[in-house]
């Protein structure tokens, strides 16, 4: 192992981890505001990847330009799912029921994608997907850098919306205490619908980057959702900052261990970290235990 490989692994971890963080942000936002665990997030990422694939292959639209279409489309998909299925979940078993309902939605979307696109794996192609540039003796892939920039811009926009707008204040109020938010006149149902839409919309960007760096089919969603859930558990359920840190940590720990020690331990090492963190902080790195007790 040389220092160059270690630096490379750290950079890869940060760049790739940020994209995972973006995908997980949608999941944690929805949980924070609605107490809904959206197991369909993984397949929605793949849906985002397939939408980019369709625009790229059949209409010649650049992957990044295509986001102008795919992000609003997935926002609408999210709103429709929330209105038709999630909003109907009531009562104390709401969170548990949401797991079943969103899993069912996930299976339906998976079936449709298999029918439409077949089970064969595809990968998004563009001039910047396989190319890299040399910087300080390290080849940095364009797609990782562009993915990182995209994730940073979207996460920054999300942060701005949450902390610098009136609507963001409504979301934060709902995140903190839904009953109190409703009492002060916030339309928590509307906030929930839009949050779900935003949570799904980010999968368009995450899916595009994921599809450009991995071959995928609808079944890929199972691996994705398990990783996204792991990220939000480590970061703290409902914490946006936690999702960012945990996403980067997850990939970076694995990459560094693969280089320093052995690839065989790369996945396990992250879970060792997860167990240690949860034994010390059961609510995750940035989770608020009191918020979930209510």
């Amino acid at each position: 192992m040389n220092s160059s490989a270690l630096i490379h692994a750290i950079i890869d971890g940060v760049l790739t981890g940020s994209v995972y963080a973006l995908m997980a942000t949608g999941l944690t936002l929805v949980f924070g505001v609605m107490d809904i665990i959206n197991l369909a997030q993984g397949i929605l990422v793949i849906l985002g990847a397939y939408l980019s694939y369709t625009l790229s292959v059949h209409f010649g639209v650049d992957l990044f330009v295509g986001l102008i279409f795919t992000i609003p489309t997935l926002f609408v998909v999210g709103v429709v799912i929330e209105r038709l299925f999630v909003a109907r979940l009531k009562g104390p078993e709401r969170t548990a029921m949401s797991i079943l309902v969103t899993y069912a939605i996930s299976l339906v979307i998976e079936g449709i994608l298999n029918e439409v696109y077949s089970i064969n794996q595809v990968q998004l192609q563009a001039w910047y997907v396989n190319r890299s540039f040399l910087i300080f003796g390290i080849y940095l892939p364009y797609i990782y850098l562009l993915g990182f920039i995209l994730a940073a811009v979207l996460l920054g926009s999300l942060y701005f919306m949450l902390y610098r707008t009136r609507f963001g204040a409504s979301i934060r109020a709902s995140l903190s205490d839904q009953t109190a938010a409703a009492l002060v006149g916030i339309d928590t149902k509307r906030v929930a619908t839009i949050c779900f839409g935003i949570g799904v919309a980010v999968t368009a960007a995450g899916g595009m980057i994921y599809g450009a760096t991995n071959a995928f089919n609808a079944s890929t969603s199972y691996d994705l959702i398990s990783r996204l859930l792991t990220i939000i558990v480590l970061g703290g359920m409902g914490s946006l900052g936690g999702a960012l840190v945990a996403g980067i940590l997850m990939v970076m720990i694995g990459d560094v261990v693969a280089v320093v020690w052995s690839p065989i331990w790369s996945s396990m090492s992250f879970f060792v970290v997860l167990v240690i963190v949860l034994s010390l902080r059961p609510q995750g790195l940035f989770g608020k235990q009191s918020a979930r007790v209510a």
Binding site: A5, H8, R227, S267
Partner: peptide, 13 residues
Amino acid sequence: SVFPSETTDYTPI
């Protein structure tokens, strides 16, 4: 090198 089957980020390897 041997890597686990659940690996998704092959870049460092």
